[in-house]
């Protein structure tokens, strides 16, 4: 049923992405691809992977933006990973004519049942964030599953039961948890750092949150000089070097 859950449990599993920490290494995208290529949404078809125009299904993409402050001209580089935001008011779910697209009542994860999807692509038109992917080979739509086959997998050690993008991030820029619970670690992090959702004007009520870059230190103060000044005169050199210097300087 593509109506949104009538009695949501209040649990909202989501990601918190720290734009201050992310270095844009694309490890999350690669790890996502690796896990999901054999997971619930498998396969993530690649077309011409080694050809002239490689193309394929990805659930996670990293954009890099330059943000220029108009007054000072100071610029900063922000690496920006983007995947499904598992919106509370997910337009990709309600437009689906078949019931293939659904939002789980128990944890708010948005999924696609690829067994009944007709591949009309309307959900990808409805999503403002580009979270929906069309698998040309299978003729159906695919999307981020929040690694639903990993986070609940009791065969994995407890610390591994987080989405692949989170467990792989080398800088710890990604956190995972219940954003519906105000006392969860992720909710506290969002509150402490003024985390925000993307394009609120679209009315989709995204669950995932982004933490803004920390204020940049502006001004003329230079970093303290930690190294001893190198003495480039010959006075401190050895006997031989001083002798060579004397002859050559003559």
């Amino acid at each position: 049923m593509t109506c949104l859950p009538k009695n949501p449990s209040g649990k909202k599993l989501g990601l918190v992405i720290d734009l201050d920490i992310c270095v844009g290494c694309h490890a999350c995208a690669v790890s996502c691809k690796e896990w999901n290529a054999s997971g619930q949404m498998a396969p993530l078809t690649d077309l011409q992977p080694y050809g002239a125009k490689p193309d394929g299904v990805w659930f996670n993409r990293i954009h890099t933006f330059e943000v220029v402050e108009p007054q000072t001209g100071a610029s900063r580089t922000v690496h920006f990973p983007k995947s499904c935001l598992h919106c509370d008011d997910a337009p990709c779910v309600t437009v689906c004519p078949t019931g293939a697209s659904y939002k789980r009542e128990e944890d708010g994860i948005v999924l696609v049942n690829t067994d009944i999807c007709i591949g009309c692509k309307l959900c990808s038109w409805a999503c403002p964030y580009g979270a929906r992917e069309y698998d040309e080979d299978e003729g159906v739509m695919k999307k981020c599953t929040m690694c639903v086959d990993k986070i609940y997998n009791e065969n994995l050690p407890e610390e591994s039961r987080v989405p692949a993008c989170v467990s792989t991030c080398p800088t710890g820029a990604r956190s995972f948890g219940d954003l519906g619970d105000p006392n969860s670690e992720v909710s506290k992090l969002v509150a402490a750092r003024n985390g925000y959702g993307l394009m609120p004007e679209q009315g989709t009520k995204p669950v995932n949150r982004y933490l803004p870059p920390r204020p940049k230190k502006l001004g003329n103060e230079l970093a303290p000089r930690l190294l001893e000044h190198v003495d480039d005169s010959a006075n401190g050199a050895g006997v031989l070097a001083r002798w060579v210097d004397k002859i050559l300087s003559a």
Binding site: G24, W58, H63, T64, F65, E66, V67, V68, E69, T77
Partner: peptide
């Protein structure tokens, strides 16, 4: 933070 411009596509 200012004007946003894409410098690297995914």
């Amino acid at each position: 933070f200012g004007k946003v411009r894409l410098i690297e596509s995914p």
